[in-house]
Amino acid sequence: MSFLTLRGVTASYGASQALFGIDLDIAEGEVVALMGRNGMGKTTTVKAICRMLPAGGTITFDGKDLTRLPSHAAARLGIGLVPEGRRCFRDLTVWENLIAAHRPGAWDWQAVTRLFPRLAERRDQRAATLSGGEQQMLAVGRALMTNPRLLILDEATEGLAPLIRAEIWDAIARLKADTAMSILVIDKSLKELRQVADCAVLVARGRTVWTGAMADLDAETSAAHVGV
């Protein structure tokens, strides 16, 4: 049963159209990888889901039509976004970043710092002074604090040191194992995606070009559309 459904989704930045027809399904508890080359519409798709861009076509989440909702309402329905480039609240401390975002549910300060113990060590440090990896953990933690039912990770491991990347991937794997959350991951490393994702959706030039189980994604298809 599909939890998030996109059908023929279109979106544009002003006069230039970026999405021409995205189809995507995520079932409850499923991890889906959204893949494609740079500039093919991955982040734009995320923006359309999170209502940061006006979109055409249909987007339904848990049976509700998202297309007419403002961004904050989509978040309140249970869509947690870890945006590209982390985008923490720079002038708030780690603690403040997290409690400011908190909505009732299982995810609280204890749960998030269990996932990322390093955040507890940096409790009173301003987000702007954290390292890139710590900011990324904070961005993931902040999205979790909203107790989402769908977590979207947009390039969560980009530009990080290998050890930190491993830590982030490990956290995603633990989220998959321990929670019923649906997860949409955008990333460039096929190897890790293959380990964690159940399904894959490949986009090219603003269209969905391939959908299927991760195990069925052959090297030829991925080379053609993702480049690896």
Partner: peptide, 16 residues
């Protein structure tokens, strides 16, 4: 406080 600095960013955590 966060909204004053980056209005659209707080929307992703559900604040209007």
């Amino acid at each position: 406080n966060a909204a004053r600095q980056v209005p659209h960013r707080v929307e992703t955590v559900g604040l209007d």
